[in-house]
Amino acid sequence: MIEIFDLEKRYGFTYAIRDINLKIETGEFIGLIGPNGSGKTTLLKLLFGYCRPTHGHIRINGQPPSPKTNSFITFYPEIDSLYGNMRVFRLIDWYSRFFTDWNKETEKKLIEFFNIPLNKYVRQLSKGFRARLKLLLSLSRDADIFLLDEPLSGIDPASRDKIVSAILREYRENQTIIFSTHIVSEAETLFERTIFLMDGSVILDGKSDDLREKYGKSIDTIFREEMYA
């Protein structure tokens, strides 16, 4: 379970996160949506302990973010930091050694499912294939919490479909997923619960189907109307 209390992250006079209170139960699959600059990445970074709150606190299974909690959290960064000069199979092998919960079976399944070219150099991969590789690295762990930062942005439709079905296939009931995106229409059916972020604050939060029922609109339409009204 993730609990967030009065969370604030300020850079100088700029608030990246402001007054966030959230409770996320184990097993929830959450869409974290908001325009660029709304604080999605900052929130995920705070959960992963990449930066510290200026006010408030976070509890992950009762503990503050630390290397200990990170041992069961996987973070899919939007920014690509893969070493171009490694061959793909070497990179996977090297990366896997950092984790005690690496699942060789899942790795094998995903290599096949994503058609990963193992012998190529990472720098030779297209953007879509780099994303597939990055996702393979994130999903091949038996982690409890998956923080996926914009896994669909800038990816071609074929790779997007692959990524979406890989997530649906590999996701288990006891795993919590927070999936951030500013492209709502293609991902909204994935989310059991949607949290709308705007200027660092949560402006709407609910079960996706309940929101559809209440507004009589798609999550994408609610998003556009609420965010850009």
Binding site: G27, F29, V164, S165, L168, R169, Y171, E173, T189, L190, F191, E192, S208, D209
Partner: peptide, 17 residues
């Protein structure tokens, strides 16, 4: 539940509901 979720591209919890 999972099979149908993957087939339809929706969250397994939605199928479960």
């Amino acid at each position: 539940i999972r099979g149908l979720a993957v087939e339809l591209g929706v969250n397994p919890n939605t199928v479960a509901r």
